[in-house]
Amino acid sequence: MRSAVGQNRGMSAGAVRRGRRPAGEDTRASIVAAAREEFAAKGYDAVSMRGVARAAGVDPGLIRHYFDGKGELFAASLVPAGADPQALAGRFAEGGIEGLGERLARTVLAVWDAPDGQVQLRLVLSGLLSADGHVQELPRYLQRTVFDQVAALLPREVAARRVGLVASQVLGVLVARHLLRLEPVASMSPDELVQSIAPTIQRYLEGVDEGLAPGPPEEQNSSHGEY
């Protein structure tokens, strides 16, 4: 199959170097760059993990050290070059809940507002809207690498609900900004947009809009009159 990625053959810069990678080089980034080239040139179905390993100059077993399978590797290739979602999420999550909405929003915009990020985002969103089955790997990948780290900071019983609301807010802003080009969102500076959406994300994270009912009255206030 020629997926949406296969239609964007020029999305990565330069050919992938052949041969084994020297020590100290960013191995994960090399694997992702090779995968992006392979998927763009051949389409999803024709690419193999072994072929990506050859293109990246690494042992095939090393790819499985970083990625659970071909689907996850494909998802990683859809992320803008140089961005490691798991590492980025680890940085904005390490400060805890306080201020997390702003850190998350700023990180997301920094990644997807970049020129390469905008190209990749339009590619991804087009694939998602067309129900491209392979592009559906990306939400699952981001769930595991990004949103699971956010969920770990929240009470377990409400984590899925709150993270889902955060994800919907972030995706909605990206669609409005880069796919639909809705004003004023499309023209706002990153700082303006962060200051506008961060409070909403923070409310979702803290659950202040959940309308939780007060707990049951204390037993000593019951009609039994026991103290």
Rank of each mutant, 00 (worst) to 15 (best):
E137Q: 13
A198F: 15
L123Y: 02
F67G: 10
V47E: 08
G99I: 15
P115D: 00
P214I: 00
R18M: 02
V208S: 02
A76K: 03
F67H: 10
R50Y: 13
V185C: 03
L123I: 15
S196N: 00
R54P: 02
Y66R: 05
E137M: 11
P199F: 05
L179V: 15
V79R: 07
D45K: 10
E210M: 09
A55N: 09
M49F: 08
P184D: 05
S196G: 00
I201S: 00
Q7I: 06
A13H: 01
V108S: 08
A55H: 01
D45M: 04
H65F: 15
V111P: 03
D113L: 06
P85K: 12
G95Q: 13
Q143E: 03
G99L: 15
D148C: 05
Q169A: 13
A34T: 00
G215L: 09
R106Y: 01
F147K: 11
A76C: 00
E157W: 14
V32I: 14
G82R: 13
L62K: 12
D132R: 06
H178A: 03
L205W: 04
L73A: 02
V16C: 03
V173K: 01
R2C: 00
G51F: 03
P216L: 14
D26W: 07
G96E: 04
L142K: 05
F74M: 02
R103L: 09
R91C: 05
G43A: 10
G225D: 12
Q86S: 13
S223W: 10
S187D: 13
I63E: 03
Q202E: 12
Y227A: 11
A15R: 13
H224N: 06
P139T: 05
I201C: 01
A93G: 11
S222Q: 10
A13W: 01
A167G: 13
P217G: 02
L179C: 08
E226T: 08
P184E: 09
L100F: 01
R177E: 06
E37T: 14
T200L: 15
A15T: 14
G43P: 01
A89M: 07
E94P: 09
R54S: 14
E210L: 04
V58K: 14
P60Q: 08
R162L: 05
G101K: 07
A4M: 05
S12F: 04
P22R: 06
S223H: 05
E98Y: 05
A33H: 13
A34F: 11
R17L: 08
Q149L: 09
H134C: 02
W112N: 01
L165Q: 08
R122F: 09
F92W: 07
V32G: 06
E37C: 09
G90R: 02
Q169E: 08
P217E: 00
F67W: 08
L125M: 15
S30F: 04
S222F: 10
Q118N: 12
L121G: 11
A55D: 10
L125K: 11
R177P: 10
Q169D: 03
N8C: 04
Y227R: 10
A151Q: 02
L104G: 03
V163I: 05
